[in-house]
């Protein structure tokens, strides 16, 4: 991201204040999709830097899971053991959280996990573009999970799936109130699922960019660079944890759909 000396915009007050102070923060510019070929507008079909990094993601997945396990070694190579580790991790998570009967949904959940994990980690490379910081993208993931699980619940249990919201243990007069709260919390699930992921990744990248802006000041630069290192370490942790949380919450929601009775 290049520093621009001055920018003439509709929001003049903000930018003037920024350029007068000598500090120029454009922490959100890293999320702008730019066309790979030419400078034209980014239409829905335009190959952009988003396309580039999603392609890199798919290539990385192919590299780890297909090329890595090419040898099919009984004694695994390094990359193969990484793939097997993730496989075992997600498989065990589904078995533990959702139950043994959910193993047939393993490919879908594994795809989600691998996609989010690789997107998070590739986004930490300098100059890269982070797909999972896009609220639209995480919303498609989150609502996709939500709709799929809801449809699955109704297909498997019919209207009995609505029993998920009707607490039989609660005292009678409380049941409608609890049902309303349960319904609301059920519909908040995809929102929180998607905003959590996008918000975490966006927040990390914005904070790093803001620290990088401080590094332009001579006096503050050592502290700013140390801060970037520290935040980068935290972001490596967050990238893994958010992929884990996204997957495990999907497993928890899937469990509700498969076994709606509490």
């Amino acid at each position: 991201m290049k520093l621009r000396k001055k920018r003439v915009t509709q929001v003049a007050t903000e930018t003037e204040a920024a350029s007068e102070g000598g500090l120029v923060f454009h922490p959100l510019d890293q999320f702008i999709p730019t066309s790979l070929f030419g400078d034209g507008a980014v239409h829905w079909y335009t190959p952009s830097n988003l396309t580039l990094w999603l392609a890199i993601l798919v290539l990385a997945v192919v590299g780890v899971f297909v090329l890595g396990s090419r040898g099919r070694g009984i004694v695994p190579s390094r990359i193969q053991s990484v793939g097997e580790l993730m496989y075992g991790f997600v498989y065990k998570m589904i078995e533990d959280v959702t139950g043994k009967d959910a193993v047939k949904y393993f490919p879908y959940i594994m795809t989600l996990f691998v996609f989010v994990l690789f997107a998070n980690y590739l986004a930490l490379l300098p100059m890269s573009y982070s797909p999972t910081s896009m609220i639209a993208i995480t919303a498609v993931l989150g609502f996709g999970v939500f709709i799929a699980i809801t449809v699955l619940g109704f297909v498997k249990h019919g209207t009995a799936f609505l029993g998920l919201f009707w607490m039989k243990d609660a005292p009678g007069f409380l049941r409608p109130i609890i049902a309303i709260i349960e319904v609301i919390s059920y519909f908040v699930r995809p929102v929180s699922l998607s905003i959590r992921l996008a918000g975490n990744i966006t927040a990390g990248h914005v904070v790093i960019k803001v620290f990088a802006g401080f590094a332009a000041l001579t006096l503050a630069s050592p502290a700013a660079i140390l801060g970037i290192v520290a935040i980068y370490g935290l972001e490596i942790l967050v990238a893994g944890i958010q992929a884990y949380v996204f997957t495990i919450l999907t497993c928890v929601y899937l469990k509700d759909a498969l076994h709606p009775a509490h």
Partner: peptide, 22 residues
């Protein structure tokens, strides 16, 4: 697993306020 789910729920609300700020 429960720990991480709890952390995620607690953190999500902080992220909401961060989003509002943004």
């Amino acid at each position: 697993a429960t720990l991480f789910i709890g952390l995620a729920f607690a953190e999500a609300l902080g992220i909401f306020s961060f989003l509002v700020a943004l």
